[in-house]
Design a protein around this nucleic acid. Structure first.
Lengths: 334, 334
DNA sequence: GTGAAAGCGCTAACAT
DNA sequence: ATGTTAGCGCTTTCAC
């Protein structure tokens, strides 16, 4: 028998002898739809139901010049911080009548990143939430600026584009004070090897806080994925000059580092205190539960989504920046 | 200035004085495109480049009656098993020229589930990978059957629809033997409270294996999310009749149970041995690293994707079932 | 209150 | 080797 052809607007229209547009008006329940007799409206609604009408997304998109989808581009959805963000973003998008196109970019190389950006833009999303930056002199940047494309970058700020970032000062200050209070005069920071240390806000905030509190610092770097982080953790464990306290660029990376430390026989927090970053829900279930500098994930998703949608609706122009506070969640790894 | 209007096929066509379809042919590099003079082809390619032409997805979809997107509907993308699956599925889909529409359904209630299914189908995906079942007498089921909609269910098999499941017999047998080998004559199983125990294949396989190996069993149930699993873990810890070995329905749930056991002062594996299910990468980074019955995630994603795509291309008809083996990954929690 | 007609950007038959 | 003609299913403008 093959696939039953999908039922269309005209099918309904024909069936009850009105025009397609009347049907469209009613089914979309638009303002002007009020000017349609109750009888017609009801008959339309009824037959739509009966025929099991499902509007065609592509047709509507083409006609309206809108795809009703918002992109969500991040580096690794396996990281709990991002899977939690993605989950929230799906709900938020859905609630506003959009659907979310989740995409990951191995943020290893800038080119790679740009390629993913281009790809997702070519997908025809109406807007994009991008966890990363948009190199100012790239083609994508020009394109985005040129067509005023609704994009908001999270984590990093880009000239001319809207963005939301966490303010690491507060959380980092709390973290350093917390460790100092536990008697640590020297703290190591494991930064992400992929981000430029001269502009890495977490890294910078860390150093600022330590300086302020007269605490010595020590730097490590890790690519970040648990398996490599594990090896980095082992290396740190074997470092004779290693500090007795560590702040790690993400909870995700921390799982790997912790494993490495343990393999080398170190116990947390007895031998080394560990603070993660992101404050993921998962941190509570690690052993020991992880003290962490939490980002306001809810705030991030809500403001970012708000910004894109407003920009899509032309209710706001690009360039707004929002900075959300961070705070320490104290658990047993310190 | 406002958004520069996107450049279209006709723009290119006009610019060099050919017809839209010549341009379309060239840009899509279709077989019939070979019959176009090299000069024209080059000029087209060049101007497309120059004008920065980006094809409209909606237009193409409408014309071809295809959206080039495949849905991925699962319960909780925060669970590492699913975030790993989703990541792989994105790549697989991308590699085949589709993009993935990830969606989550809180699989609490069947109605909820059905609603999500309907929603994602109405999105106009060309096919769907669904981690769950499709109630046989539901509207969606009829619709799917009626229009021969390309869907493959994972985890559960549905009459008439393609599906891929894990064969728990092998892995469960290994697990029980493994524990018996460590001297456990009594094993508890923490099943998911959401699935019907009379048809739950893991649960059934567990009991079968225990019977076969003359091992006593004990049943617990958990809703599964770490926070609730933690409380379930505490309850189990306080149960005077609790077994000294536990197999838990998922690694994700296991994180919660482990935490609960620890809160009550129990040590793993000394006081109780624990085996998770799914064999997620994350298991390696738990403390202690989790022994787990692994599913063949790679196989699941590849075969499922293969099936949908083949069905979309009418190269295969619905109803094929594939069963993939499971196997024990032995780590330190036992 | 309702309809007719044009078109969104692309593709697929059939010309030529 | 290339062009013409029709749509895909919906929205929108303007006329009745």
């Amino acid at each position: 028998m093959g696939a039953a052809m999908a039922v269309t607007l005209s099918d309904i229209a024909e069936r009850i002898g009105v025009s397609k547009m009347t049907v469209s008006l009613v089914l979309n329940n638009r303002k002007s739809g009020l000017r349609i007799s109750d009888r017609t409206r009801e008959r339309i609604l009824a037959t739509a139901q009966e025929l099991n009408y499902i509007p065609s997304f592509s047709a509507r998109s083409l006609a309206r010049g809108k795809t009703f989808s918002i992109g969500f581009l991040c580096g690794d959805i396996q990281s709990p911080h991002y899977s939690e963000l993605a989950t929230m973003a799906m709900r938020e998008a859905e609630a506003r009548g959009y659907h979310l196109l989740v995409s990951v970019t191995p943020w290893i190389s800038t080119e790679n990143n740009l390629e993913c950006l281009e790809t997702i833009l070519s997908r025809g999303v109406d807007g994009l939430i991008h966890f990363g930056n948009v190199p100012v002199d790239s083609k994508v940047h020009r394109r985005i600026m040129g067509e005023q494309f609704p994009i908001v970058t999270v984590n990093e700020l880009t000239d001319g584009l809207s963005g939301v970032v966490s303010d690491w000062e507060s959380g980092m200050d709390e973290a350093v004070r917390h460790l100092k209070g536990k008697g640590h005069g020297r703290i190591g920071y494991v930064r992400s090897a992929y981000v430029d240390k001269t502009t890495d806000p977490k890294y910078l905030a860390f150093h600022r806080a330590c300086r302020q509190h007269g605490v010595e610092t020590m730097d490590y770097a890790s690519v970040g994925h648990p398996p490599t982080a594990r090896e980095d953790g082992r290396r740190i464990a074997r470092d004779p000059k290693r500090p007795r306290a560590l702040i790690i660029a993400s909870d995700y990376t921390a799982t790997g580092i912790l494993r490495g430390l343990r393999i080398e026989g170190l116990e947390v927090p007895r031998d080394v205190a560990v603070i993660g970053i992101d404050g993921t829900d998962m941190g509570e279930f690690m052993n020991p539960p992880l003290t962490s500098i939490a980002q306001d994930r809810d705030g991030i998703v809500k403001t970012a989504m708000d910004m894109v949608v407003k920009m899509i609706d032309k209710e706001e122009s690009p360039g707004r920046k929002v900075r959300l506070p961070t705070k320490l969640i104290s658990r047993e790894s310190t």
